[in-house]
């Protein structure tokens, strides 16, 4: 196909502004079109690249859509049982204190089945990074209700909307673990706009830097979309997320340098 507005003369290494990092394996991501996982994967690997810790980083993939993260992230990866990534990360970090360890979990993994592991790892003040992708739904299994589902939100297991009288309230696990003394940096970000992506990258950098200090968990929640589960187009899903998710899950730092800021 002929590119009408192409400028091949500009495509030289000295003019290069942005390219996909080599720390992502060169294969197509398995996620749906428009899913936020891809951006978080890329930002995480850019942080690893900038910090120059590719050979001493160990990641733990969860159960959920991002279970295949080990196929895409070009660092050492392990797969944990459902929800048990913080427990596995605890073991790895204690046995290899000079390695950078992160867990990458979704809301079904971290906030539902893995609540105990998450809270206790944070309470013990372990020294690794938790990346939590919150899209308010169980994306991989077909859009069932998760603990983070918004009140009134329709999913395949609450087709008339989440009724808080029967099904309980959405769990704000990030605010919950920020109360624990074992966490050092807790933040909530998003990846739907360029500005939000840049902020997320900074937050991920800060959370990984926490491991140098050895003062506790760095926790980054990323509010993301699930356009397949929400039955919307990616752009609509991002808009819906801004209108409905952000009032419930406001973006910004919650705990910085061990002090609550919100």
């Amino acid at each position: 196909m002929e590119e009408k507005f192409a400028h091949p003369e500009l495509r030289t290494p000295e003019n290069l502004v942005y390219k996909r990092t080599d720390f992502l394996v060169d294969r197509p991501l398995s996620y749906c079109p428009g899913c936020g996982h891809g951006v978080v994967h890329r930002m995480l690997m850019e942080v690893v690249e900038d910090k120059g810790i590719g050979s001493i980083t160990i990641g733990i993939s969860p159960v959920g859509c991002s279970v295949l993260a080990y196929d895409f992230l070009n660092v050492d990866m392990l797969g944990a049982a459902h929800g048990r990534a913080p427990a596995l990360a605890t073991a790895i970090k204690r046995l290899w204190p000079n390695r950078y360890v992160f867990t990458y979990q979704g809301d079904g993994d971290l906030a539902a089945i893995g609540t105990a592991e998450t809270i206790h790892a944070c309470n013990r003040g372990e020294n690794f990074t938790i990346i939590f992708i919150n899209n308010g739904i169980y994306g991989m299994t077909g859009g069932q209700m998760a603990p983070t589902t918004l009140p009134g939100m329709r999913t395949s297991t609450c087709p008339y909307g989440r009724d808080v009288g029967i099904m309980g309230h959405p769990m704000k696990i990030t605010e919950l673990i920020a109360q624990l003394p074992g966490t050092y940096y807790v933040t909530r970000q998003a990846v739907h706009t360029p500005a939000a992506v840049r902020k997320t990258k900074k937050a991920l950098r800060k959370a990984i830097d926490c491991q140098d200090l050895g003062k506790g968990i760095g926790f980054v929640e990323v509010v993301s979309n699930c356009n397949s589960g929400w039955k919307m187009t990616p752009v609509q899903a991002n808009q819906w997320m801004e209108e409905h998710m952000f009032p419930k899950y406001p973006l910004g730092d919650i705990k910085v340098d061990g002090e609550l800021v919100k």
Partner: peptide
């Protein structure tokens, strides 16, 4: 060449040049 598109692209398919 502001690279906004490349930043938000979930699959990282866009490479940006600027001069």
């Amino acid at each position: 060449g502001c690279s906004n598109c490349a930043l938000v692209c979930p699959d990282g398919v866009i490479t940006v040049y600027r001069a």
